[in-house]
Amino acid sequence: MNSTIVLFLLQDGIINGAIYALLAVALVLVFAVTRVIFVPQGEYVAYAALTLAALQAGRVPGIVWLLVAIGAAAAVAELWRSRSDLHWRRLAAILGGDVALPLALAGIAYLAAPLQLGLIANAGLTLALVVPLGPYIYRLAFQPLANASVLVLLIAAVGVHLALLGLGLAFFGPEGYRIPPLSRYALDLGGVPVSAQSMIVIALTLLLLFGLYLFFGRTLLGKALRAAALNRRGALLVGISPGMAGRLAFGMAALIGALSGVLIAPLTTIYFDSGFLIGLKGFVAAIIGGLVSYPLTVAAALVVGLVEAFSSFWASSFKEVIVFTVILPILLWRSLRSTHYEDEE
């Protein structure tokens, strides 16, 4: 191994780590607000990448059918929950947000797909199609279990993952897709070419992380989410709805996952099941961060990306094993430091 190879591996590790950082931050956000270890976070990545690839090819993505179906299911569930005090304004809000919005987005996709409007417009349409899945999934699968234990919520998350995996195969097929990069320009950095796509990934990751910092520190909604994460009962007492906080957290997680899918679509071939492995690496970083600390989570994600890059050079057949093994000493160390309590009968 010489210095040129090291620089190439560092570049790959930082780019991968940037994507894992976004996913890990989304996992920490969802867990802090709702106590859900959201296993299918990586499905947003795969759905967004495959949706963007379909739009770039001039095809209507299958996700439009999923969006319409899940929106209708959310509407039925909400009508059932509100049956005792349903009024016309509530009915209009449910039909508008859960039925009319998915149908409108599906219509836009049908009109826009054959036009092949370009990468920027298709990326925006991809985000519009994928992001609403977050609040819908929360309302269908997790809001009814809001007071359940973390273990029950984890089992529900695994069930959602399996459902989304099967739906991904049904709507996108088993083929893998990859789109051309936004730009083929490359900057020579010490003899190592750094592609424009790599610089875009890093720049947008930093911009999004800074935006999240401002959101949580400067906006009323961000402070409400922090309050709900710190003390759910106290937040409820001061008028912060746990349901609103959960929907917002899942929506932000879907936005982060969809943006990650848009960023990596030109970098690697994505299949319907690729998101699970990508999400697991973000999960490793989130666990190292304790599912609490955002800065530590981002630093851990960069470490995971670098470990993966160098492992692929030294032992490519075992790179996944090596990445997931990183979590073991962290868990052992935390187990030794934590105080154990006996369960009461």
Results as ranks from 00 to 15, higher is better:
314 W>Q: 05
270 I>R: 11
314 W>F: 06
192 V>H: 12
323 V>N: 07
239 G>D: 03
282 G>M: 06
100 A>E: 04
264 I>P: 05
274 S>Q: 00
226 R>I: 13
117 L>H: 01
39 V>H: 02
99 V>W: 11
112 A>F: 13
205 T>Q: 13
214 L>W: 15
265 A>H: 06
88 W>V: 14
210 F>Y: 10
284 V>N: 02
209 L>M: 10
12 D>S: 12
253 A>M: 08
8 F>T: 10
272 F>G: 07
101 L>V: 14
271 Y>C: 01
282 G>H: 07
177 Y>E: 15
174 P>G: 11
187 L>R: 14
96 G>F: 11
321 V>S: 13
178 R>L: 11
219 T>S: 13
189 L>E: 11
89 R>S: 15
121 A>E: 13
55 L>P: 03
295 P>E: 02
176 G>V: 06
79 L>Y: 07
153 L>Q: 11
288 I>K: 10
298 V>P: 00
179 I>E: 06
292 V>I: 11
140 L>F: 08
303 V>W: 05
167 L>K: 00
236 L>K: 15
196 A>T: 08
192 V>D: 01
301 A>H: 05
245 A>S: 14
84 S>Q: 15
119 L>S: 05
327 I>K: 04
263 L>T: 05
78 E>P: 01
110 Y>L: 15
224 A>F: 12
37 I>G: 10
124 G>E: 02
312 S>E: 13
56 Q>P: 07
234 G>C: 03
51 T>R: 04
8 F>I: 08
215 F>P: 01
154 L>Q: 07
216 F>P: 01
288 I>G: 11
120 I>Q: 01
30 V>Q: 11
16 N>I: 05
331 L>K: 11
10 L>S: 11
135 P>L: 10
194 V>M: 11
72 A>W: 02
22 L>R: 01
236 L>I: 14
203 A>W: 06
197 Q>P: 04
68 V>E: 05
282 G>C: 08
258 A>I: 08
165 L>D: 13
147 N>E: 14
112 A>Y: 13
95 L>D: 04
296 L>M: 15
197 Q>W: 08
143 Q>A: 12
90 R>I: 09
209 L>S: 11
237 L>P: 10
56 Q>M: 03
278 I>S: 00
98 D>I: 07
108 I>S: 09
163 A>T: 10
120 I>F: 07
189 L>Y: 07
102 P>I: 05
215 F>D: 00
47 Y>F: 13
329 P>H: 09
97 G>M: 03
137 I>L: 14
129 L>F: 05
222 G>A: 02
269 T>Y: 12
203 A>R: 09
66 L>P: 08
8 F>G: 12
80 W>F: 13
